Amino acid sequence: MGQTSIKVSNVTPRCLTGMAGEKLLTAVRSALDKGDDVCLDFSDVTMFASLFFNNSIAKLIPELPPENLAKRVQVKNLNDTGKKALSRSLEVGGIFYKLDPQERENIEMIIKKSLSLWE
């Protein structure tokens, strides 16, 4: 078991969208599946949104309890804006993933319907 370093700017230049978050999640899961811990280096990234973290790091919560997540996935060179967005995502993700699967499905359906009104 080793450590995989991922320079986030090589995966996505801006951490703003859910799609960018999914790209990072794929890279992180690949390393975790090999048994490696992960260090995410956010140098050269200055723009962040909670949506990005919701679709990347927070999606690991069902697989890794928060105490294990903090040990297995480390973050460096994250600016204050990024730290706030990540913190919000992990807080909400922790609450969301503790809900029963039917409640989560209902919430996801409501969100999708709401978003479709903006299209």
Score class of each variant (00 low, 15 high):
63 E>Q: 13
19 M>T: 15
30 S>C: 11
39 C>Y: 11
55 N>D: 12
29 R>D: 03
67 E>Q: 15
68 N>W: 10
30 S>R: 11
52 F>A: 09
32 L>N: 01
54 N>T: 11
70 A>I: 14
26 T>F: 13
37 D>Q: 14
69 L>A: 06
50 S>W: 08
54 N>Q: 11
36 D>P: 02
17 T>H: 09
50 S>N: 10
54 N>F: 14
27 A>T: 09
17 T>Y: 01
33 D>F: 14
48 F>P: 00
47 M>C: 14
36 D>N: 12
48 F>G: 02
65 P>W: 03
33 D>R: 11
32 L>S: 04
47 M>A: 15
20 A>T: 00
22 E>H: 10
60 L>H: 08
16 L>Q: 02
28 V>C: 03
27 A>R: 04
37 D>E: 14
67 E>F: 12
56 S>E: 01
30 S>Y: 04
62 P>F: 01
34 K>S: 12
23 K>H: 08
19 M>Q: 15
52 F>S: 00
49 A>I: 14
66 P>Y: 04
18 G>V: 12
44 D>A: 11
61 I>E: 08
34 K>F: 09
65 P>L: 12
33 D>A: 15
59 K>E: 14
24 L>E: 07
31 A>Y: 03
46 T>Y: 11
62 P>W: 06
29 R>A: 00
46 T>V: 13
53 F>H: 05
38 V>P: 00
65 P>Y: 02
52 F>D: 05
23 K>M: 06
37 D>L: 10
23 K>E: 05
41 D>K: 04
64 L>V: 02
